[in-house]
Design a protein around this nucleic acid. Structure first.
Lengths: 117, 117
DNA sequence: GATGGTGTGTACTGGTTAGTATACAGGACA
DNA sequence: TGTCCTGTATACTAACCAGTACACACCATC
């Protein structure tokens, strides 16, 4: 699960090349944690932060929240909430899509988005 | 979140009307927990059990695992795993389906099931 | 009236989560 | 040379999680 840390560090350093405001300390301050904690999280020395902290971090680093959560081995509680409301429906749907290729999933995404419901 | 407990108790008592093997003690034994713990879980005095225990309980009571997990405020880690693999795709899909009526979701379920991929 | 079943109350626990607080060493630059 | 910034090491913690262990009181019924 240290993909999370690697990703964050690389993303932050990349941003920092263009803006010194992305030092570890400044980002830590922006998202409201101790610099030592962010340091350890980036190096995978501690488990990834909580969902709330990850989402603030995603905001600060301008990356997709769901992606950063996934790298941390988590799923947004917003998505879980949707599933929890209709568990059998979403359970079957998601299990059914497990092995579908990306393009097939994407087709459904679009079908839903441009929904003719 | 005591819907979980109520549901379990009612389901168990219903089953017990036809089969005395569904006493609290016997079910607890079957799923491998202490009777006092199952008692408290049924009355909502403790938080719902872990995912693994809930799934064994669902098996013992012959109910859908996803449904019982949902009543416990959880989502199967199997489903989370599917989402975690393609977070942006599934993130958008699920968010997009949040407010769709059941029949629309069901249509997609069928579309996936009878997949013409 | 003991035995065996039922559910429940009380007390405790080891491990995990999500961090804080503080001190430290190295480099830039004035 | 001092001071300011960088990242990191060390030590600690309050709250929560997922239970266990055991004793208790209440019924049946033999």
């Amino acid at each position: 699960m240290t993909d999370f840390g690697e990703f964050v560090r690389e993303r932050r350093e990349a941003l920092r090349r263009g803006d010194p405001g992305f030092s570890l300390r400044r980002v830590a301050e922006k998202i409201g944690v101790q610099p030592s904690y962010l340091s350890k999280a980036e190096r995978g020395e501690v488990a990834p932060p909580s969902e709330a902290t990850i989402l603030r971090l995603a905001g600060a680093l301008e990356v997709d929240g769901d992606v950063l959560l996934a790298l941390a081995g988590k799923v947004s509680s917003e998505l879980k909430e949707v599933i929890r409301r209709r568990p059998q429906l979403f359970g079957e749907l998601i299990r059914g899509m497990r092995d579908l290729p990306d393009h097939a999933v994407l087709r459904l995404v679009r079908e839903v988005r441009d929904g003719d419901w």
